[in-house]
Every structure is written in C-alpha cells, then in structure tokens.
Nucleic acid binder design. Structure first.
Lengths: 221, 221
DNA sequence: TGCGATAAAATCGTATACGATTATAGGATA
DNA sequence: TATCCTATAATCGTATACGATTTTATCGCA
C-alpha cells in the first residue's frame, strides 16, 4: 500500500534528521561516517548521500576531506527562519484552507488530535507531530516549491523549539492557538487563518527570544 | 587563493547543473549514471551524491531503483517561482544595498560589465552571468538562509529564461533595468532598488507568460 | 615545560565489484 | 495481429577496498 518504495539512502535522510533534531548528534562535532553507518547497519555510500541531502536542507555543514558537522544553533538564524516563515506561511495557509479536500481536512484534524494526546502523555516527539500538523495545513495549497521551502524552514525551526521551548513543558498557549487555527482553516476562513498564523508564529518567536535571552544570562555553561 | 577546496562530488554539482540549465540533459529521460560518470571521468559514487543534491535543489526527480530524471518545465512552476521571488527579493535586495561593502559593490559592478559585454558578443552563458549578477546584489544582505532559497529560485528561473527568452536574442529592456538597478543599489537607495526589483521580476515574468502562450499556440511539436 | 617536526593512526572520498531490480527482446498462444 | 510469458540485457543501489588527506601521538630539542 506504500505509495513509493524508498531506497536505503532516502530512509537514512529521515533517520539522521531525527537524530539531529533530538540532539543525538551534537553540533560542530564531526560525524564519523563509518561509525554512524555501522550503527545504522549500512555502508558509508548511502549514508553519505543522505548527509549530502541534509546539508542541502541546512542541517549540516561540510568541509572537503573533513566531512560533515551539524550546524550550530544561533539566535540570528532563528530570527531569519521565523522572518521567512512570517513572509511565506500566512498566504500559503490561506490558499490551502481554500483548496483542502475532505481527506486533507481529516488528516489535519487527526494530526492535531494525535499532537494533543501526545502532549497530554508528555511523550517524546511532540516536536515532530507539531511540524506534521503545521505542514498538513500548508500542503493542500498545491504549491510544491513553496511547500518544500516551508518544510525545510519548519525543520530548522524545530531545532530551536525542541532545544529551548519543549524542555519548559506543556505549552497551553500553543495548544489553544492550534485549535483555533484548525477551526478557522476547516471553515475556510482565509482572513482568520491568516491572522492566527501570524500571531502563532510571532508568539512562538517571542517565547524563543525570551528563552534565548534567559539562557544566555543564566547558566554560564 | 581558493577559499575552499572542493571534492569531486561538489564539482559535479556545478557541472551537472550547468548541463541541465543549457539543456544538454533532457527532461523526463532517465539519467544513465554509468554513462554520465564515464563521460565526466569519474565513478558513480560522487555523481550520485551530486544528483542527490540537485534533486534537493528541485532540478531532478528520482524514483527508487529507477534513478534520476530532469524535472520538466511547466508554466505553473514558473508562476510559483516568480511569485516567491517577488515575495523575497525586494526586501532582501534593499537590505543588501544598505550593507554592501566596497568589495561587494565592486563585484556587482564588475559582474554587470561582464554580463553586458557577453550580451554584446552574443555568447553562450548569458543566463549564468545574469544569475551571478542578481545574486551579487542579494548576497550582502547577510541572510544565509534567505540567500540559499533565492539562489535556488534563480536556478529554477534560469531554466525558463534560457529556454523561452534567450532564444529571442538581445533583451534591451532587461539590460537597461539592470543598469538602473545597479545604480540605485550602489547609491543605497532602498526604496528605489526595491521598486525596480519588483518591476524587473514582474516584467520578466510578463515576457515569459507571453512567450509560453505564443509557443503553446504556435508550433504543434 | 613547551614547541616543532616526524611517524602512526584514523578518517575521508572515490573506484571497483556485485546482488537486486527494472527494462527489453523473443517467442508461444489465442 | 495482439498479448502474455519468459529469458536476457541493462541499469540501479550498496558493500567492499584502497589511496589520499587529516588528525593524533611520539619524540627531539630549546
């Protein structure tokens, strides 16, 4: 029933991305290709293809003959990523609200339900479901180039959220905003979903700024 | 003097991209990896890494066990790419105008001179220099994520321009707009460079639309 | 002790080799 | 003739092997 068969290198893209997002692979330290490949039960060949793709996604950096490293997080990059989301997401999400069919609407609803129950159980992976929900609201716009860009911006965002906001625990503000957004989106209220999206991204960025400031002043390590 | 040593796979990215842009590799037909690698004098390993990167750039598509194909050009994609450029470029180019240092200003001027003389001599590769000029106006903004996105959008744009507009010959309108843009950009006139950029992208899109329409009606092949 | 040079080890990047999958050609049958 | 089936060839994707480069360790010497 799977739509597309995937070869090893493409599966590795998801697996390694997940490790980067949850911090299993530390920033700035070189990625040992043989070791990581062995750990994944494959050779370097497909792993290197996956790493090349992840570099294109903006998660890794590489130097000739020195391999790949996870790119470090910076406040400047966070600002840029959120600024781009603010430029692109509101219009896209409005178009998606207009065009979404019943299946896509169901998918979005389901993802928010899953995200909620995962939030309640306090499980790992809230970040991934959060991203999946947001992307489900964007995909029906039928703008593949825009969507790919937003997919990547959400991946980059998620690094900051998981590192700096998720540790704070349950985020009631975000949960409520998600419900409101879904409601407006399902109702195809383009004005409202647009406005709610601006607020949601803006508030998340505010939280992030506050936390980055707090952390930079607080612990010396 | 070269800033960064590049391994074979990264050089191949540029070489294969150039082939895609000039049409040497045809859309939709599968890319024969062994043959292309042999032609480039390398093995499939670095070639496949390059192809994976180019797929991430949006130039190629892949199917498991069937390899890579060049993505076809569509009017819908052209519209989307230009819409994205209109959303992102004006603000970015204004910031770049504000921040550009003397070296970056010189680089932009030089590139436009080269583009002009190449236009006069009617040589191949006008498209590449056109892209290099535009990117030189954007790079000094100091927004690496935005810049990478714009780099890719310009690559996608270039496919359409080279296929549908360059064959028409010398484009005096674009040449004049480039001069005006450079002037405003060097003068750090943010309002003006912003407005000129909107016009330039918009008019190029208009030309493209016209040509796409004409071609779709004209030759049956 | 600290520093520079050399040797050894580790790691990267790519060529070769090969099993797995897909595409093509050649009949056999309706 | 058209269609299905099988055999063959072509191609893909990955494991292994190995030279090239970088990193680490060792030593001599100020």
């Amino acid at each position: 029933m799977s739509i597309a068969a995937r070869n090893v290198s493409e599966q590795l893209v998801d697996q390694v991305r997940a490790r980067i997002l949850n911090g299993t692979v530390a920033p700035d330290r070189p990625i040992r290709q043989d070791a990581l490949a062995a750990e994944m039960g494959v050779s370097k060949i497909p792993l290197r293809e996956a790493l090349a793709r992840l570099e294109q996604e903006g998660l890794l950096a590489s130097q000739a003959n020195r391999g790949f490293t996870v790119r470090p997080l910076t406040a400047v990059e966070a600002e840029e990523v959120y600024a781009l989301r603010l430029k692109l997401e509101p219009e896209t999400i409005a178009i998606a609200a207009r065009l979404a069919d019943a299946g896509e609407q169901q998918a979005a609803s389901d993802l928010l339900d899953q995200l909620d129950s995962l939030t309640d159980s306090g499980g790992e992976g809230v970040g991934a479901f959060n991203r999946a929900f947001h992307l489900a609201l964007l995909r029906p716009a039928g703008r593949p180039v825009t969507f790919t860009i937003l997919e990547r911006l959400h991946v980059l965002s998620e690094r900051y959220v998981r590192k700096h906001l998720e540790p704070l625990g349950r985020n009631e503000r975000a949960n409520e905003e998600h419900r409101e957004m879904l409601q407006a989106w399902l109702a195809r209220d383009e004005r409202k979903i647009c406005a709610l999206t601006v607020v949601h991204i803006g508030k998340t960025l505010d939280d992030l700024r506050l936390q980055l400031q707090t952390e930079s002043k607080g612990p010396p390590g």
